[in-house]
Design a binder for these strands. Structure first.
Lengths: 154, 154
DNA sequence: TATTGTTATACTCTATAACTATA
DNA sequence: TATAGTTATAGAGTATAACAATA
């Protein structure tokens, strides 16, 4: 892991030991997720799109007319936290919001042309980012990993 | 995924589609990590220990005398962000901090008896939490998953 | 009564820049 | 010059509670 000097004895210590953490899936998930996140940000530089807003655009494109509560539920984002995100995408004219046909409380969300264009641009960048992050994994390992992760979130 | 009414047409829609996100490892990592995080918090209720402070206690126990920079590097926590965390553990008397022998700039960190006790208590809870979260995975699947995740962070 | 969208608020994690004292 | 610890600050994700309008 990391070469360190032992601050107490001054003896050279070859590595930081971490038997406990190394065997915790939760810790490994958190570390791996953060590595991806850092590279995701680099890949998306200049787009002002973050993981949450990308997920929103992708989900709205595939489910035109979806309302905010359903969108939040599908993405694991609470209604309250979705509000400023929706506002941001509206202000950037990446999505459109119309009154829902059968429910005066709700809105139907859809992508604007600009939103569709930006989504396509971001999707291309993200595919390259994933390819870069998964370079060490074979095709079957990638499939395995996706399957195992899906099992954890279900 | 989630049953929603289509807000535009009012037609029943069986599921939220998400072809794109479902095939992104970065997204799956983020979702799974968050599922674990939520359950981790529940499992640690009453201890005032969070993921970062648990990782610190575990790493200090296995590397007595380690300094803050090395600790941060081993955990992926920047020096600047480590400071308030170290202070918190010092104030709770869970760790001790002594001047390093060979470097007047550095401190040697170690666990107090209280810290060792709390670490043991938390470790037990976390093992139960992991067991709970991994219930759907076989032993070999768990090993596979840990191995694949390690490949991503290296 | 329950649900949709909203406001307000707080906590945690992470990132960057710049400082001091030592090495 | 580089490193250890520190301060200050900001961005982003997530959590809870409560409200008005509508179902």
């Amino acid at each position: 892991m990391n070469q360190i000097p032992d601050a107490e004895t001054g003896n050279p210590v070859s590595e930081v030991r971490n038997e406990l953490l190394e065997h915790l899936v939760g810790y490994a998930l958190s570390r791996a997720s953060n590595v991806f996140l850092t590279d995701f940000r680099r890949a998306m530089e200049g787009t002002s799109i973050r993981p949450a807003t990308f997920a929103m655009l992708a989900t709205i494109e595939e489910n035109p007319g979806i309302n905010q509560t359903s969108l939040g539920r599908a993405l694991g984002i609470q209604r309250a936290n979705l509000v400023p995100l929706v506002n941001e995408l509206l202000e950037r004219a990446l999505i459109e919001r119309h009154p829902a046909a059968n429910d005066k409380r709700a809105f139907a969300l859809g992508l604007s042309d600009a939103g569709r264009e930006l989504l396509a641009e971001c999707t291309g960048r993200i595919r390259a980012h994933e390819e870069h992050m998964l370079a060490r994994l074979s095709v079957s390992e990638r499939t395995q990993l996706l399957g195992l992760l899906a099992k954890l979130s279900r």
